[in-house]
Amino acid sequence: MGEAIVITSGKGGVGKTTTTVNIGTALALTGKSVALVDTDIGLRNLDVVMGLENRIIYDLVDVVEQQCKLSQALIRDKRFDCLVLLPAAQTKDKAAIDPSDMEEIVEELKRDYDYVLIDCPAGIEQGFKNAVAGADQSIVVSTPEVSAVRDADRIVGLLEQEDMDPPRLVVNRIRNHMMQNGDMLDVDEVVSTLAIELLGAVVDDDSVIKAANDGQPIAMDPDSKASIAYRNIARRINGESVPLMNFDDDKGVLKKVKKFFGIRA
């Protein structure tokens, strides 16, 4: 029996979909079987970021309306056999399904997959309620911006009322230089405000945007800092204890390595 994890944020545009795709890919890299579910009905884009748009035949609403079997609607990823996507419908809206439908689908997916990642739409209305319905765990994505943190706080409050484990936090789009200048909230401030466990922090990396446009998840690229961050998050979800990445520039990392080996920098 797998685990269902909803990925949510409240605010739009903070990187829920990117986070879902990359955590999913990174989990698949570790050999786990993963199903991604796009619940943003009417505004789907998980398939685009994964480069699977052209393969969609059936979608989530078709499954709910019993136009097809769940297995028929699942799209296998190009890169991993153990990674599948259940796309959202583009033509319907969020009222087309209700929380009990989601519970059923997620329950069925959990039987076959180690992880079911549910990409939640922005907002706190029907779409959010649907996405949260079947989840056992939750990940809240926020950027280090006051407005995103405010909405994340609201979401954490709502998630705490649900019958699931306490939510965990991913801070996305960190800009080192701005954080060091104090022009941006730093990760510690976000964590202390939200007072939930930090699952990982991802730097703002131009290659993330390029990769998303190419339909090639950044988590595939072993050199990108964002990719390493996502892989670390996946390992933490798997229960490994991985220290947080250092956000300083490379010199700092080198310093740390030297310090580790007892060499004076």
Binding site: V146, R150, D151, R154, V156, G157, A195
Partner: peptide, 21 residues
């Protein structure tokens, strides 16, 4: 948290934060 409203009759002793909102 943001959006939550706690109402108490009498005095409130809160062991925690009141976040913005």
């Amino acid at each position: 948290r943001s959006g939550q409203v706690i109402e108490i009759r009498g005095d409130l002793l809160l062991l925690g934060d009141v976040n913005p909102g």
